[in-house]
Design a protein around this nucleic acid. Structure first.
Lengths: 194, 194
DNA sequence: ATCTTTATGTTACAGATTTCACAATAAAGA
DNA sequence: TCTTTATTGTGAAATCTGTAACATAAAGAT
């Protein structure tokens, strides 16, 4: 909206575009001390500055990729992270030799992980290793100082409470969609359930 | 557990392994009429049969992939869907010529989509197209009869209420993790918040 | 200057979800 | 056969989340 020349925005604009109620937008903003003006709405510039502060978007946030199979490669090729001030700084694999080719970041052997993570002071990792080794690799990551993991492995990872795991299981997402499709007519009451 | 030779399982076993409370497991099972026996727990075989029925796991569930870029390719290469009784039956791209090589499923041009979807009676699609064209392609999908979409595009898709969209935004997942890492020490109260 | 309109910020309410508590009871053991 | 024990199934309580309502401030109209 800023690029389009707007200076202010209303909670219901943001709500409509993000699929959230305007009240929710206002509550969230209020939570972080982002003030608007009665009638005038919110100043877009102020919003952007505050959001940048909240997420520390003044500096690139470093992330590593562990596992350079199909999914790991796809993520490493993706060009859109810069927009979010996220930078993939390194990748790791058991056998880095066969993947070293045309990747935009250096690929290291797994046993280099502790050194690289501590040298670069990375705190966030994307995990794209086979299910069978996921828990073991997560343990290594935590050992190395990683505190947030985005895992694509379809398995529940056990981690201490100060570690955050975001799990993406494509299979489960699909099952959820298929379930909805199968039971489309079941919803007599009009209320969204399950 | 069945493969390990177990015949019964308790709600707290399943809870521990899935990161859910035992009560929740029992309530969910109860919701679907899955009965256990006092003391004896749940019969694993019965559970599997019922779950198979709920998700129609007796037959392969057909899914298409739209967009054969890096992410689409990675998903098409993934071998693990068969375990979930999910089968990727076709892929689509604006320019299918350059991707036809070693993919395990046929890749069609986008304008073949309506015919293929209706011929194969597919209801579920994975969307891995660039952000800019995502909304347009979703419209095509819905037009063709798709009712569930798993989208990797980092944009909010507007769809009618009977369509289910599951959105995976890797950038947002990372931002969430980074936020947690940045504010690890903030949590004085001991309660998990935000 | 006063009234009307519009959008925020917050409080009160309603709904949904999760946890807790425990009665019921089948199985195991005495 | 009786007692004990372990686990289910569920109703009530607590918590969390989302929605609605409204008081308030700014802007514009009369």
């Amino acid at each position: 909206m800023q690029e389009l020349g707007f200076e202010t925005v209303y909670s219901y604009n943001l709500g409509r575009e993000t699929g959230v109620s305007p009240e929710q937008v206002r509550k969230d903003f209020s939570q972080f001390g982002m003030k608007g003006r009665k009638k005038g709405g919110y100043n877009i510039n102020e919003l952007l500055i505050t959001i940048r502060e909240i997420f520390r978007k003044d500096e690139l946030q470093k992330v590593i990729v562990v596992g350079t199979g199909n999914m790991g490669n796809a993520i490493l090729q993706y060009k859109g992270f810069q927009k979010n001030m996220i930078e993939l700084v390194a990748a790791f694999d058991i056998d880095p030799s066969k993947y070293r080719k045309k990747l935009p970041v250096p690929v290291y052997s797994l046993d280099k992980l502790p050194k690289v993570v501590s040298d670069l002071n990375v705190k966030t990792a994307i995990l794209t290793v086979p299910e069978q080794v996921a828990q073991g690799v997560v343990n290594l990551l935590i050992e190395a100082g990683i505190t947030g993991v985005l895992s694509f492995a379809p398995t529940v990872l056990k981690v201490p409470p100060h570690i955050t795991i975001n799990q993406i299981c494509i299979g489960h997402e699909l099952e959820s969609l298929i379930y909805h499709s199968l039971h489309l007519g079941d919803n007599k009451s009009g209320k969204e359930k399950c």
